[in-house]
Structure formats: structure tokens, C-alpha cells
């Protein structure tokens, strides 16, 4: 069977290639994996992104926090190994595995006001797995991007279930936000060989992202 099938051009990126692009992106722009508020992150730069503290009444300056994602590892269908229940992966889906370190500034407040409180960072590192699919931004003329959209996320090793559900939701939103910064331009799929007008795909199968189309 030909690669192009009933089309005139075919492009595939296997999961190693996808992870190479992911590594290149987050190595060049690590601030999209590292977020936090002062004093953990004093200012936005290449390495980290400053956000506001979590406001809460009678906590001066709010609650300081920090989130650090490890480099996400993407696995394209079929899965390379079993996924944590209840996650499953079907044709057209990918899984992503990452570690996330959550840090909060644990403050002690001086209720007398005679002296300032202290903030002690407290952290936990969690293993998260998620599954999702691809989104396409097609700008026409062979230009566009692929993006990675999470459908479901599981945090491992957290009890009780209600706490795990809270973390699943919060971390799914956070990891989705971090991954949304990563886009894979159409021209990169073929390392600049083709200006591809997509006719079919992208599909995820055979451990790769597959796209069919014509050369424009």
C-alpha cells in the first residue's frame, strides 16, 4: 500500500519526532512549564512565568504558589504500555505523562501585628497521566498548526477519591493550559519539504500523526 493512497502527498511524524518537538519547544521556552507567584517567581522571564498569588481574605499578599511541570512525554496510539485506570486510548488519541510539583507558601501569621509572618514552601510531586486528541488550526494555503487537547487526566497515588477528583480537574486545566502553548506548524511536519494542503487527517495511528493532502 502506498503512503499517499488516494491523495498526492503524505506526511507522518512518529512519537519520537513529536517528543523531539516537545522537548525543543519547552527547552527553548521553559516558562510554559514553570508558573508561580512571588516570592517563588519574582518576574516573568524565559525560564518561568510570574502569576498573582491566590487572594484570600486576611492573608496579606494572598497565598503564594508555584507549579512546575516536568517535560511531558507523549505516546501516540497504540499505547506503549498500560495506562492508569480508568484511562484508555483509542485510535486518534495520544497519552501524555508528566510529573508536576505543586508548591504553596505555608504562612504563619502574627495576629498581634508586632512582627511579620513567615512563609515556608511546602511541595508535593505528583505523577499525572492524560489522554486527548489533536486540534487543527488550518489557515489555508498550506499554513496551520496542530495542537494537543486533553480529554481526561488521572493523578496517581492520591486518596481519598474526592481529593483525587479535585486534583484531576485542577491539574487537567493546568496541564492543558501548558500544552496549549505548544503548537506544531504544518511546515514542520515534513521539515519544510512540502507546503501541504490537508485533505485528510490528522489521524493518530501506528505510533504516528498522519496527514494526507496535496502539494500547493
Amino acid at each position: 500500500m502506498s503512503f499517499t493512497q488516494t491523495h498526492h502527498a503524505f506526511v507522518a511524524v512518529d512519537e519520537d519526532g513529536v517528543n523531539d518537538f516537545v522537548t525543543a519547544f519547552f527547552t527553548a521556552r521553559p516558562r510554559y512549564l514553570h508558573y508561580g507567584s512571588p516570592p517563588f517567581v519574582a518576574a516573568t522571564g524565559i525560564t518561568q512565568t510570574e502569576m498573582g498569588a491566590i487572594p484570600f481574605p486576611f492573608i496579606p499578599g494572598g497565598i503564594a504558589w508555584r507549579v512546575d511541570f516536568g517535560l511531558p512525554q507523549i505516546d501516540l496510539y497504540p499505547p506503549n504500555g498500560p495506562l492508569p485506570a480508568p484511562l484508555t486510548m483509542a485510535v486518534g488519541q495520544f497519552s501524555v505523562h508528566a510529573q508536576v510539583r505543586l508548591t504553596v507558601g505555608c504562612g504563619t501569621l502574627d495576629q498581634t501585628g508586632d512582627k511579620g509572618g513567615t512563609i515556608t514552601p511546602i511541595s508535593t510531586t505528583l505523577d499525572v497521566w492524560a489522554v486527548g486528541g489533536l486540534l487543527v488550526d488550518n489557515f489555508g494555503g498550506g499554513n496551520g498548526n496542530l495542537r494537543f487537547q486533553l480529554d481526561e487526566l488521572e493523578v496517581l497515588g492520591v486518596e481519598p477519591e474526592s481529593l483525587r477528583n479535585v486534583l484531576d480537574c485542577v491539574l487537567r486545566m493546568m496541564l492543558q493550559a501548558a500544552l496549549s502553548t505548544f503548537t506544531l506548524p504544518f511546515h514542520a511536519l515534513s521539515a519544510g519539504f512540502l507546503t501541504l494542503t490537508i485533505e485528510a487527517g490528522p489521524e493518530i495511528d501506528n505510533d504516528q500523526i498522519e496527514v494526507w493532502g496535496t502539494v500547493s
Binding site: S2, F3, T4, H8, A9, F10, V11, A12, V13, D14, D16, G17, D20, L189, S190, A191, F193, L194, D207, Q208, T214, V215
Partner: peptide
């Protein structure tokens, strides 16, 4: 397996050439 693969048939090869 290579990281990236791009294939063109003869129709597309005419365009490229």
C-alpha cells in the same frame, strides 16, 4: 522508523520538480 516521513506521488513530484 524515522521521526518524520514525507511521501509524494508522481503528480506531486511534477509540482515539486
Amino acid at each position: 522508523m524515522s521521526d518524520l516521513l514525507a511521501a509524494i506521488d508522481e503528480t506531486a513530484a511534477n509540482t515539486i520538480l
